[in-house]
């Protein structure tokens, strides 16, 4: 464990908590893409199948449980509890264009052709593009609530910090995983446009508005 990975996990956890609280407190999922949350639930499910078979540490196991539980709780709130506030007309990204190519790629490019490894690889590839429906929805509605932009910032920063974690691990642990690194780079690049708007607008107290 190193400071970058720890801060990354904290940032990821806070993003998940921010979103949960936003929906629960405001009893509304307006502006939130249910499709992205569905993809995140798939990402955590396919990545943490070894949750009960491969104990790494209490921290690792407890964080995985929290991630999986909160992603399902978020999906449940969007599609069930507060579905009346779900803005389906703006959440129109074709997720099959994300799921199918990443599934095929995980069969072609992986570290080991075993079910668990392929599912892990699929979850890494899918996570790198899972935010697209949400970013697409924000660009379609032309703006996002400030709390939603904080959620997106925390979520984007987490994988950016993981990039530094991989540099650290390469330097000091002679360790690197090209699949995770390349997917993490793609994931971070997708946020660049949003990061720019967040830093130039939201941090100056303005509302986040994307050019529609």
């Amino acid at each position: 464990m190193n400071i970058f990975r720890f801060l990354g996990d904290i940032s990821h956890l806070s993003a998940i908590i921010i979103l949960l609280l936003k929906i629960w407190k405001s009893r509304s999922c307006a502006g939130i893409s249910g499709k992205s949350q569905l993809l995140f639930a798939i990402v955590f499910t396919t990545r943490y199948l070894d949750l009960f078979t491969n104990f790494i540490s209490f921290y690792n196991t407890s964080m995985k449980v929290v991630y999986v539980a909160s992603s399902y709780a978020t999906v449940w709130m969007i599609y069930s509890k507060f579905k009346a506030t779900y803005d389906g007309n703006h959440d129109t990204f074709r997720v099959e264009f994300l799921i199918v190519p990443t599934a095929i790629l995980s069969f072609l490019v992986n570290h080991d052709f075993t079910p668990l490894e392929i599912l892990w690889t699929f979850s890494i590839y899918l996570e790198s593009v899972a935010i697209l429906p949400q970013l697409f929805m924000v660009s379609k509605t032309g703006e996002a609530e400030t709390i939603t932009s904080h959620y997106l910032f925390a979520l984007g920063i987490y994988r950016t910090l993981y990039l530094f974690n991989w540099i650290w691990r390469y330097q000091f642990e002679e360790f690197f995983d090209l699949i995770a690194i390349v997917a993490g780079l793609v994931q971070t690049v997708l946020y660049c446009d949003f990061f720019y708007l967040y830093i130039t607008k939201v941090l100056k107290g303005k509302k986040l508005s994307l050019p529609a």
């Binding site: 996990d9 491969n54 002679e174």
Partner: peptide, 10 residues
């Protein structure tokens, strides 16, 4: 060298 995948990471 490429190590095994980042399985100890979240």
């Amino acid at each position: 060298e490429t190590n095994t995948a980042a399985k100890d990471e979240l």
